[in-house]
Design a protein around this nucleic acid. Structure first.
Lengths: 186, 186
DNA sequence: GTCTATATAATGATAGAC
DNA sequence: GTCTATCATTATATAGAC
């Protein structure tokens, strides 16, 4: 980021972390190098290892920060299925440029070490949040299925770029997704 | 493969292609090198480029072959939702070692060029097959949603390795998935 | 038809200067 | 606290021998 001051450890660290969130979400763990992340943060590549140990350490912290931001799953039980469906359609719209933790997961899951870090982060933060807003899903596997549907839709619409989902009527899409979430969150 | 004869172009080509299917499905486009694929096929790395142009050319042919094999979506309209759910749970079981085209997609989608090849293959073969067995989904986006749910479930259970989905009761899982597909394939 | 050897470029990580 | 310079490794792709 632009505001990284020289000789300010905290600001430099924060700039690298933010650049890491952006880069890993857009390109995946294997799709970006530490040099490019450092350049985006306005520092030399060496400082990535200085502050985060190595590339994997930076990724772990990126996952931790990204997964704690909550924007898709809202808290009103009465309208939960509809709200999730609406947010999902909106945030995956063709012109949306959204740095979602689901994108971070989808684009880094092919790397085995990254997948393990992601699994831990998802279970600790995202899945746990589903249990908070929908306690009835505990022990049923349905919370994990909610995340499966969200991830699968994000994959097809924004990573693969399905033309059927780009062309589909957004209201009809949201309506169908709502019915899926109503099955999972009764 | 072991049966690649020396000085047999067709057999060598086939051996490389099969090794490519295996390697790209297990490790993704960025997670494997042409050296390793050639070694698994019992030939030198040079022959990959000789027969397929380059790594991307081999990947394109791997996608083409993988996507034409049909094993998840069966053809009986009356039991379609139930059959897809059952096959999905069975083929993603913790001890299953399944070289699914969905795994190929999930592990290679982070690469932009691979994603474009995958999108074309999915729309040409897999999505088209959904239209064959469920013509009523045409133009609704629901065929693409079926693929989203399948891909999302495969991701969480076999790529990420969700402990909730590994521990979940398989009959309950199949039942819930069946209800999802019944929403999408009425 | 297939090989070995190599060109070229990029990667993650480290050493040591300032 | 941050840099430049560099190491060791790996990648794809190609040249030329047999």
């Amino acid at each position: 980021m632009a505001t990284a001051r020289r000789r300010d450890a905290a600001a430099t660290r924060a700039a690298i972390l933010q650049a890491g969130i952006d880069a890993f979400t857009r390109h995946g763990f294997d799709g970006i190098g530490v040099r490019e992340i450092a350049q985006a943060a306005g520092v030399s590549a060496m400082l990535v290892n200085r502050y985060f140990g190595n590339k994997e350490g930076l990724f772990a912290e990126v996952v931790e920060v990204s997964m704690t931001d909550r924007t898709v799953l809202t808290g009103d039980p009465a309208t939960l299925a509809r709200d999730i469906a609406a947010a999902l359609v909106r945030r995956t719209a063709p012109d949306a440029d959204d740095l979602s933790p689901f994108l971070l997961m989808l684009r880094s899951a092919s790397n085995q070490r990254a997948a393990e870090i992601l699994r831990a982060g998802i279970e600790k933060h995202v899945e746990a949040h589903v249990y908070d807003v929908a306690p009835q899903t505990r022990g049923t596997g349905r919370a994990a299925l909610v995340l499966s549907v969200i991830a699968g839709f994000w994959l097809q619409r924004k990573v693969i770029g399905s033309t059927a989902l780009e062309a589909a009527d957004e209201e009809e899409l949201a309506g169908t997704l709502r019915r899926l979430f109503e099955v999972l969150l009764p």
